[in-house]
């Protein structure tokens, strides 16, 4: 069947962009292929993995199931828009420092889902983070570093500069018996 095309103005990371695309193309396709914003990844294109998560009007949504044609007039945020000038967003910086991004493929989606959570709740509990991110699969990290990085970033965003991620996140837990001998 012949394709119906459309030209819309999408507001991506605060910048309006006029872009032409076929109406059946998802936001994921338009971001990656028309706008060159390849930071948004994809893992299934069926809404089953969370990898393609972006923010629309501040809410994390699956860009693989969102038609770009329906995004006009809405605010779209992708991982490329997270940095503040040449500085990493605290979430980005905590993820990088703790190793919460290993292969880094699920990372953009998780960063955005976490950003939405922290915008709503500046001191989420561990359970609240788990719940908010439970639709975003990661195969590398075992999730712990991600949780610790988000807690650290939350503290930094609250202005709590004293907060440090738990030592065990970086060095492992103190080996029983060893400390007594070594210290």
């Amino acid at each position: 069947m012949s394709q119906q095309s459309t030209t819309r103005t999408l507001r991506v990371n605060g910048e309006p962009q006029q872009v032409a695309f076929a109406v059946h193309h998802s936001l994921l396709e338009v971001l990656r292929e028309e706008l060159g914003l390849t930071g948004t990844k994809h893992g299934c294109e069926l809404g089953e993995c969370g990898t393609c998560t972006v923010l629309i009007d501040g809410k994390p949504v699956l860009s693989c199931l969102e038609l770009a044609a329906e995004c006009e007039g809405r605010s779209i945020e992708t991982v490329e828009g997270m940095m503040q000038g040449n500085q990493l967003h605290p979430l980005q910086s905590c993820f990088a420092d703790l190793g919460a991004a290993q292969c880094g493929y699920c990372t953009p989606g998780i960063l955005l889902a976490a950003q939405a959570l922290l915008a709503e709740n500046d001191s989420p509990t561990r359970d609240q983070i788990v719940e908010a991110l439970s639709g975003n699969l990661c195969r590398c990290t075992g999730y712990h570093k991600i949780l610790e990085a988000i807690e650290w970033a939350a503290a930094r965003l609250r202005g709590d500069d004293q907060y440090q991620p738990p030592n065990s996140a970086i060095y492992g837990d103190p080996v029983p018996g060893k400390q007594a001998k070594d210290v």
């Binding site: 119906q4 109406v23 193309h25 998802s26 994921l28 396709e29 299934c44 294109e45």
Partner: peptide, 12 residues
Amino acid sequence: MLRLPAFTFHQP
């Protein structure tokens, strides 16, 4: 990437 087949789209 798994993509949608083409269709015409209406936004009433």
